[in-house]
Amino acid sequence: MIIHSIFFFIFSFIAIVSAIMVTASKNTVHSVFFLILDFISISCLFIMIGAEFLGMMMLIVYVGAVAVLFLFVVMMLNVSQQKNQWFASTISSAHIPMGLLISVIIFFEIIIVIAGWKYKPEILNSFPNSIDSEITNTHSIGYVLYTDYIHVFQISGIILLTAMIGAIVLTFRQRTGLKRQSYFKQITRERNESVELKDVESKKGVKIDV
C-alpha cells in the first residue's frame, strides 16, 4: 500500500498547489491551466479510491468541455492589460471579506459532513444502497440513479434544460439584413426565374434588385 499512499500524496499535493496557483498566478490564462491541472489531479484521486466512472466523468465534463470554454473566454480577454494582482489592488481586495465568508461556510459544511462519517459510523450504513464490491461502480451508480433517485435525476435534468434554454434566450438576438445560405433555395432555383434578358437603354442603365 505504500506506493498507493505515495501516489495519493503526490496527486493531492498537486491538487492543493494548483488550487492555490489558480488564485495566485498573475496571468489569467495560467490560472485556467492550473484549474485544469487541479481537475485532472482530482480525477486521479477519484480513480485511486476506485470510483473510476466519476473520475472519467470529471475528465470528460470538466476538463474536456467546461474548461475548454472557460479557456476560450479567458483567451479572448486582453490579458496583457488585465493582470491578476493578488491582494495588490483595492478593487480585488474589496472582495476578500465576502470570499472569506463563503469559504468559511463551505469549510464548516465539509467539517460537519466528515465529522458525521467519523463519529457516527452508522450514517454510512444507513444509506439505502450499501456499496457492493461485486459489481463495477458504473453499474452501481446506474442502479441507484435510475431506481431510487429517478425523480431527483429527472428534476436535475429539467433544471439543466431550463438553464440551457435561458442561456439561449439571453444571448439570442435576431439580426436583420443578414444574407443566409439556403440549400433548398439554391437547389430549387430554375433558369427561367433567375435569368432574365433586359433591353438596356443607352446612358440610362437598368435597376437591379438583389
Partner: peptide, 14 residues
C-alpha cells in the same frame, strides 16, 4: 480497465 471507452473519450477530448 472497466471504463476503457470513457478513458478513450476523455483523452481524445483533452
Amino acid at each position: 480497465i472497466n471504463v476503457g471507452i470513457l478513458y478513450l473519450f476523455a483523452v481524445s477530448s483533452l
